[in-house]
Design a protein around this nucleic acid. Structure first.
Lengths: 95, 95
DNA sequence: TAAAAACATCGAAATATTTAGATATTCAAA
DNA sequence: TTTGAATATCTAAATATTTCGATGTTTTTA
């Protein structure tokens, strides 16, 4: 359960979101109703597998995505709590 | 009046927020009840004036801050609409 | 009008990020 | 148990960002 993010976490999340590929990854995963597999995400982009892996890692380390390893596959869902907490942090700038 | 942000704008805003100094600048300006002057912001940090100017420029170009030049001084307020629109974009990942 | 204050811009060094290829690991299926 | 599929890690090059000092611009004030 996330109550509030600290400034370091907000910085990390912002950095993770500051890239066109990673934003598109978030969009794809958020718009899918079920879990999305790593290789399905990769197929959408014209990037090397290692590059994709690197982008996904950043989103996971920022807690924006939750990864679930099933056998040799990796599935993702959006971390709704972190998205909400981050959004709140930013919208509070406007209060 | 901002209705919705496009992905390029979201990327730019995220990049602007992905730095500890710029996050602190946003906090300082958002927490002040009146406009904040550039030199007041600079005084809070141990950074060269040109560096400060660069950080503020990024926040302004991302539309997170609105700058108002009064004589030789520059005053800021938070762009509430953009903060809200950005927060919505991100929190929508969790829907 | 000369000096100073507030901010912007330029150029360059230091640092960080992005990307791909090569290789390693881990699990599944033949 | 060997092969292949999915993903991770390492290394290195290309690119981008951060930072500062020097200098430029604009406006205020002495």
């Amino acid at each position: 359960m996330i109550t509030e993010l600290n400034i370091k976490q907000v910085e990390k999340i912002s950095k993770a979101l500051g890239d066109p590929y990673r934003l598109k990854i978030m969009k794809i995963i958020s718009q899918s109703d079920s879990c999305v597999q790593c290789c399905d995400v990769s197929a959408e982009f014209n990037l090397a597998q290692s590059t994709m892996s690197h982008h996904l890692k950043q989103l996971i380390e920022a807690d924006l995505l939750i990864a679930d390893k099933e056998g040799r596959n990796l599935k993702f869902v959006v971390n709704k709590e972190v998205c909400a907490a981050y959004a709140k942090y930013i919208s509070d700038f406007g209060l």
